[in-house]
Design a protein around this nucleic acid. Structure first.
Lengths: 212, 212
DNA sequence: GAAGTCGACTTGACAGTGTCAAGTGGTTCG
DNA sequence: CGAACCACTTGACACTGTCAAGTCGACTTC
């Protein structure tokens, strides 16, 4: 599917560098071209317009996220707790390690991904994997309740990643930027422990509701 | 504080209309001026540059959010559950009813709010009210645990609002846009019930988890 | 091997943008 | 009366995305 031309990759990388350096508005077709050492029109040969660059980044990002999620879930599918924690950890890590991709992926107002089927496919695959994994870990509940719980976990995870990326959590907690990852860990642990409290309860009562 | 000149308000409203119609990129100084019926330079008399318009919108948004949060908390401070649900409901409602403000408030890459003390103040006030209210509702826990739980709830709430606003939850669940508010209600109820499960345990010792 | 086609790229032009600089007209005040 | 100030306008600049028209080398095809 992606038979990466040289220039195509270069433009994508240059765009990501620009976005990570100065936000999404910093990305300009011409500066990306300049950074890649070609004329201002060269990128148009690979991307129909500016939106197409962003859509390509989003597509790539969703693909990467899905890979990382499934890989991590394969390792931690043992229990409800570890599956939940693994999803959150992976999601947050992804956001912190690929801020450029993450920003683009969730800027639906600036990136018209609905016009790019491949982007939608990848997004659906990533979120599908995520929601299904969580959903499975609430196996004892009726379907709709499970779905809602899965959505709640997704919301938590997504919100945590977003707040961290925007530095809002660090600001409120006085955590330096370098320690954001540790902060995320603590919050995730608290969340998982609290959110799966009745698993503990049931386990103790001996009426183990097995999951995963 | 805000001795609203006519034109200042007009420009702000025009900007919000543009943002809500076509995303943050759609806002241009000149189009806002045009929409307000003045010359392209008139807005500069009230806002130093484009960033200042966005910062003003963010400032206003944080102020509104804080008001709505404290008002809603006054009403539902009775129990842990209702406080938690009230915060989430109010936050999500705010996002859905003021999408323009919300988008600007959390676009830290495009809006340099760190240069606008009033915006920071309002943001801190809003988040402070939110986190404290949640924090208080976990009164039984040690301070750091409480803080982490409060952050977790904030993350959930923020994530839910964001996913709804971007239409991602609606897309995954097949919910039509008009019913997003109901969907939010269900997810919030599920979350609160699950997250405060041990309160239930203490209250009733039984299992009355409700979802749907 | 000449002629034609095609793809990757360049050059040139246009309207639209943010923003600096300078001008205009009305109100206020000494 | 005039000067100062204010809210605004007009004009200009470099920059942007994107359309249109080249250039130029590799590849087919006769």
């Amino acid at each position: 599917m992606t038979e990466e031309t040289d220039l195509r990759r270069k433009v994508l990388n240059a765009s990501l560098a620009l976005i990570e350096a100065g936000g999404l508005d910093r990305l300009s077709m011409r500066e990306a071209a300049r950074k890649a050492g070609v004329s201002h029109q060269a990128p148009y040969h690979h991307f129909g317009d500016r939106g197409a660059i962003l859509a390509a980044i989003a597509t790539e990002g969703f693909g990467m996220l899905q890979q990382e999620l499934t890989r991590s879930l394969d390792k931690h599918a043992a229990s409800q707790r570890s599956a939940l924690a693994a999803v959150a950890r992976t999601y947050v890590d992804f956001a912190l390690r690929h801020p450029g991709h993450f920003r683009v992926m969730f800027r639906s107002d600036a990136v018209p991904i609905e016009n790019y089927p491949e982007a939608l496919e990848n997004a659906d695959a990533a979120f599908g994997a995520l929601v299904q994994a969580i959903d499975r870990s609430f196996a004892g509940e009726p379907p709709e309740a499970r779905r809602n719980l899965a959505f709640a976990c997704w919301a938590f995870t997504h919100g945590l990643a977003t707040l961290l990326l925007d530095g809002l959590l660090a600001r409120r907690s006085g955590t330096p930027k370098g320690r954001q990852s540790e902060l995320a860990d603590k919050v995730i642990k608290s969340f998982v422990a609290q959110f799966t409290a009745d698993e503990t309860r049931l386990d103790r009562k001996g009426r183990s509701r097995h999951s995963g």
